[in-house]
Amino acid sequence: MVYTVSTVGEFISTIEPFKNLSPNTIQEISAQFQPLKYDMGQIMLVKEKIPPYIAIIYEGQARCIAYDPRNSTPVSVQLISNGSVIGWESLIRGFPCETAIASTPVVALTLERDKFLDLLKKHPSLKEYYQNQVGLIEIFELLGQQLLQRATGEGNLKELVKDTIIDSQVCNLSAGKARQ
């Protein structure tokens, strides 16, 4: 398949939250996305490293993997496909937390980390969207740590995350001293 700025722009204009940008802005950022192919089983993001880009799945499917803190077992928490954005959670929160592995051959449109962060500065609506977006991996980690601290510590963490994420909300606090 041939990837042109116009086909990338048409695709990007259907993806939340990019679809809320002006057509001119979409056209401008479309030229900055680069297609990247992954073979089935290839690692797309690694939990231990801040990703060099965000990636939007254009073709194929991948699995988001989390690690249960009670036993370090990898858990497939979500199957993602066309239009899913990965990498944002690590970049927005400022620490590496995402692992994704291609389940089929994948073509992803990637936007370099610095370009993504610049885009957030220029478009406050994008920054607000991602800052207020509850990340599946962060909910998994948070609930996993809570289970780890309990005496029984039992339960299906994946199911607990699915039940909890619906009502979850992000609260962004300003930098500064914590009140006691």
Rank of each mutant, 00 (worst) to 15 (best):
G153I: 03
T104R: 07
K115H: 02
D118A: 14
E98L: 12
F116G: 00
N156W: 06
E141A: 03
P105I: 12
Q146V: 15
G87E: 02
V85T: 12
K122F: 11
Q133S: 02
Y129D: 00
L126P: 05
D163F: 01
L119K: 01
I137M: 08
P96A: 12
E112D: 14
I86G: 10
F140C: 08
G135S: 08
N132R: 14
S125M: 13
I80G: 03
G94I: 04
C97K: 13
S103A: 14
F116H: 04
L79V: 13
A102K: 12
Q131G: 03
T110W: 07
V107Y: 03
V106W: 05
L91I: 01
N82K: 12
K121T: 05
E141P: 00
G144C: 09
K121V: 11
L119V: 09
G83W: 00
C97H: 07
D118T: 15
G155F: 02
G135V: 05
K121P: 01
G87M: 06
E112N: 10
L119R: 02
A100L: 11
N156C: 10
I92K: 06
I166N: 01
V106A: 09
S125K: 15
I139N: 00
F140A: 06
L142A: 09
K122L: 15
D167V: 13
L126M: 13
L79M: 13
I165D: 03
H123C: 07
K115M: 05
T152Q: 11
R150W: 09
K122N: 15
I80V: 15
D118F: 12
A108I: 09
D167H: 08
T99G: 06
R93T: 11
V134L: 02
E128L: 14
G83T: 08
P105S: 10
P96T: 03
K158W: 04
D118K: 15
F140E: 07
I165Q: 02
K127I: 01
S81P: 07
S81A: 13
I101V: 12
E154D: 12
I80Y: 06
R93V: 09
L117M: 14
E128A: 15
E98H: 00
L157A: 11
Q149D: 12
Q133L: 07
A100Q: 03
G87A: 02
Q145G: 11
K162Q: 14
D163N: 02
E112G: 11
K127N: 00
G144M: 05
G94S: 01
T110C: 15
W88E: 15
T104E: 10
V161S: 08
Y130V: 00
L143E: 10
N82H: 11
V85M: 04
V134D: 01
N82A: 07
Y129F: 07
L79S: 13
L117R: 15
G87T: 06
E154C: 05
V106N: 05
I101P: 01
H123E: 15
Y130K: 02
T99S: 14
L136I: 09
L136M: 06
P124I: 08
L148V: 04
Q146F: 15
L117P: 04
L160Y: 00
K127V: 01
L120P: 03
